[in-house]
Design a protein around this nucleic acid. Structure first.
Lengths: 255, 255
DNA sequence: CGTTTGATTGATTGTTATCAATGTCGGTGG
DNA sequence: CCACCGACATTGATAACAATCAATCAAACG
């Protein structure tokens, strides 16, 4: 592993000492480190929150570097703070699955397995907040609110993953791509950004392996959406959503 | 809803008073009601466990009846104690997804949504242990061990669902079917049953909608597995796994 | 019995994968 | 500076696999 691990130099935590601050209803919108988020949600005294913060390592990955490799023993959990990553699995014959994309605010570490079941690679330069399994266990023991928060997040992720099942099992390429674009737009909205344009840090191949298609089919689907006026693309990584109604209709099956 | 709801008449709980009993390592193998399981895991005093038990409703569904309908407000969580159910979603044009099969020991209720995202139907006559959302919240507040248990289970379910993604995105029909059969065999082994034969309570159509295929393709895949000697089928609902190596090799991608 | 439901098999079609070529952008070194 | 190269994206031609359409069969059921 070529990870450059740096200590987290904690900026002030925005929770007044010991006071309860309502948990932001939309977890995906939380782009900070999980610990900081927890400090707010669990209404910990500032001093305790700082202790937590001290446990977190600040991790940086250059584009292309791997955070974890499929098959390795699990050694930590992470929260993405900057950049974008992909969760992938490879078959011996070269077939490839992208099981998901990881963006700021996303938590990495929901698994019941003792070894990682996917590799996780940085698509762009990325930053993450990291905890060892041991620290995480300690934190959970000390702060039941953390466990509740994690359960909630795991459930949301399960909902999303089940939605992907529908796409892969029964939707045609146009519907899958529209669903993907709408989903990316929703992520932006949750971050408080303009959701009429979407930035796609990943390649067409990544999208294909995420949607269970080939690059060619993905490219043709982009072209068809462009031709019918649903989207406009400058460079391939910037997509403007022109006909949101149409896209939503195509993606309807995924909610 | 045509649910016949009966009060649970609690049989004696097999945990000695106040003594810690080790949590069975394999959660899927727990075929009892979640509360009973929890009483053991959390090492509650018998008296407290009885209080929990009193909260649980015993639910019975005839084959074909629906437990919950997609779009309804969530009103409870459940543990399957007998029978088999399917988690389904329908599109307006008739396309159908079976997002999973639910068997004894399975927990129903991991979702971050306020409304059910799938309908759940009994395949065969089934029995479940039911809790209202309110009771569940109370239980979680009173017993942090329950929340931990649920998080663990949710993570296991997430692992499994991500495995299904690989099947739907990149595996051919034979591989998908082999993976399904191996999975069903594993479930039997966890229940302590003979795993060389598998019972499939669901129809070929259910399997097709689970594997993202058509009935015909599923049927042909069964035939091919039979012809190559990997399996033998008496009636369509009983499959003998003859060449486990071959099946495992086909299903390899899913672990 | 006639009817319905589910499973299997065969014939044909069609959508998407595969194969192949071209284009574009960025970086690199002559 | 510019020619070259590699990675990525797009488009076209063809092929293959699974879907569709259709028929038969068996078992369950009123």
């Amino acid at each position: 592993m070529s990870l450059r691990v740096l200590r987290h130099n904690g900026a002030p935590i925005p929770a007044p000492m010991g006071e309860a601050v309502p948990c932001p209803s939309d977890l995906q919108g939380c782009s900070g480190c999980l610990v900081r988020h927890l400090a707010i949600c669990a209404a910990l005294p500032l001093e305790q929150a700082r202790t937590l913060e001290a446990l977190a390592d600040d991790l940086r990955l250059a584009a292309g570097e791997q955070l974890v490799r499929e098959g390795e023993a699990r050694r930590g959990v992470f929260t993405v703070t900057r950049g974008a990553l992909r969760r992938i699995r490879l078959l011996p014959d070269g077939r490839r699955l992208v099981a998901g994309f990881l963006m700021p605010g996303d938590f990495i570490g929901f698994s019941g397995a003792s070894h990682y079941r996917h590799s996780i690679e940085a698509i762009t330069d990325s930053a993450l907040c990291a905890f060892s399994m041991a620290d995480m266990r300690t934190l959970c023991n000390d702060h039941p609110a953390l466990e509740r928060e994690l359960l909630e997040r795991a459930c949301v992720e399960l909902d999303a993953t089940r939605g992907n099942l529908m796409a892969l099992a029964r939707l045609n390429p146009m519907e899958r791509l529209a669903g993907f674009l709408v989903d990316m737009a929703q992520r932006r909205r949750r971050q408080g950004q303009d959701d009429s344009e979407v930035v796609l840090p990943m390649t067409r191949t990544d999208i294909a392996d995420y949607l269970g298609l080939t690059v060619e089919t993905v490219s043709r689907s982009f072209t068809r959406l462009r031709q019918e006026g649903s989207i406009a693309t400058g460079d391939p990584h910037h997509v403007r959503l022109l006909d949101r109604k149409r896209l939503d209709a195509l993606a309807e099956a995924l909610d």
